[in-house]
């Protein structure tokens, strides 16, 4: 993505709550989901689709809820740090097992672990609140307790800064030798072995980064919504992340956030104006994207820009010259 376009996108997002009324929470939700989708995109670079990354999203969300429950609301940045680190540690544990597998087995094993955690959240109701979940206390920000309104403003900008930093860092990560080795898993694991590189170790590192991003998104989401339920770990949530990655474009870090913003926008307005058929509308949007922009919205934008920049063919130029 061009720096100017990137900066314009950030600026537009930063001023959006002042232009579109009541969009602040919606944008915060989209940015939080975008972070989790970015985690899924990291794994897609290696050609692996996880249908269970809601696990890390939920671990961080419950971690944030517990912090608030036992430490009087807690501190926003501490909650985010704890959520991210706990998700990364869970990523290490689960990753040690799942990176041994590829493709459908990788996807399904992630799904299984996520659903085991979902069941634990449902059954251990005396700790987790069961299907009712837990209320997330509003944390202080750098020691300052805030009312709901100002807190939501701060939270939106914190989410925006997190999203921008994550995009920059993940873009650099994917351009690094490790990131390139991660992408190489998709095309040739045999050669990778013959370079002296362990594909499993590379995938594990990618998996931990991916889990940490989901964790950061989960923490922000828990604080934004003020409640956590087992639904955070439900397989539909994991599918939603994959859906958004395809919608936005899995080949670029920006795709995660463009996809999340479009997804949340369509979902919110479709459910407001067509409550009974909003899933149908979402499905239709994805079908259109797959048919006309197989590389996602970001891929479509890049393609359009490239076709505009391409010099006219000699044939058409010659035709113009002759017609003069």
């Amino acid at each position: 993505m061009k720096p100017a376009l990137f900066l314009a996108g950030i600026l537009l997002c930063a001023i959006a709550p002042w232009i579109i009324p009541n969009s602040q929470v919606l944008l915060t939700i989209a940015l939080s989901k975008g972070l989790a989708v970015l985690g899924v995109i990291v794994l897609l670079q290696a050609g692996q689709v996880s249908f269970g990354h809601a696990l890390f999203y939920a671990i961080a969300a419950y971690g944030t809820a517990f912090l608030g429950k036992y430490f009087g609301g807690g501190e926003l940045f501490l909650a985010m740090a704890i959520g991210t680190i706990s998700a990364a540690l869970a990523g290490l544990l689960v990753g040690l097992f799942v990176v041994r597998y590829r493709h459908i087995f990788f996807g399904m094993l992630n799904l299984s672990v996520s659903m085991i955690f979902f069941s634990i959240l449902e059954k251990f109701y005396f700790i987790t609140g069961g299907s009712d979940g837990l209320r997330v206390e509003r944390p202080s920000v750098l020691g300052i307790a805030m009312e709901r309104g100002p807190f939501e403003v701060v939270l939106f900008y914190v989410a925006l800064v997190c999203a921008v930093l994550a995009m920059i860092l993940i873009h650099r990560f994917l351009s690094s030798p490790l990131g390139n080795h991660l992408r190489a898993i998709k095309s040739n694991e045999v050669r990778l072995e013959y370079l002296g590189v362990s594909p499993r170790l590379v995938l594990l590192k990618g998996y931990i980064v991916s889990a940490a991003l989901c964790g950061l998104g989960g923490s922000l989401m828990a604080v934004t919504l003020g409640v956590v339920t087992p639904e955070y770990a439900w397989w539909v949530r994991s599918g939603e992340f994959v859906f958004i990655a395809i919608l936005g474009g899995s080949g670029s870090v920006g795709g995660a956030f463009v996809g999340a913003l479009v997804y949340e926008g369509v979902r919110t307005y479709a459910s407001a104006f067509a409550a009974d058929v909003w899933q149908l509308i979402l499905g239709g949007v994805l079908l259109v994207v797959i048919l006309f922009a197989p590389k996602g919205l970001i891929g479509f934008i890049k393609q359009r820009k490239a076709s505009n920049l391409r010099p006219r063919s000699s044939k058409s130029a010659a035709g113009e010259a002759l017609s003069k």
């Binding site: 860092l169 990560f173 351009s175 690094s176 030798p177 080795h181 190489a184 095309s187 050669r191 002296g196």
Partner: peptide
């Protein structure tokens, strides 16, 4: 070879692997 990479990137990835250079945020 790594089909999605350029010729130079293929060689660079081997150079990086041989030197054990894995600083996560340095471009290839």
């Amino acid at each position: 070879l790594f089909a999605e990479h350029s010729v130079r990137e293929n060689i660079l990835m081997a150079v990086a692997a041989a030197s054990g250079y894995e600083a996560p945020l340095t471009r290839l």
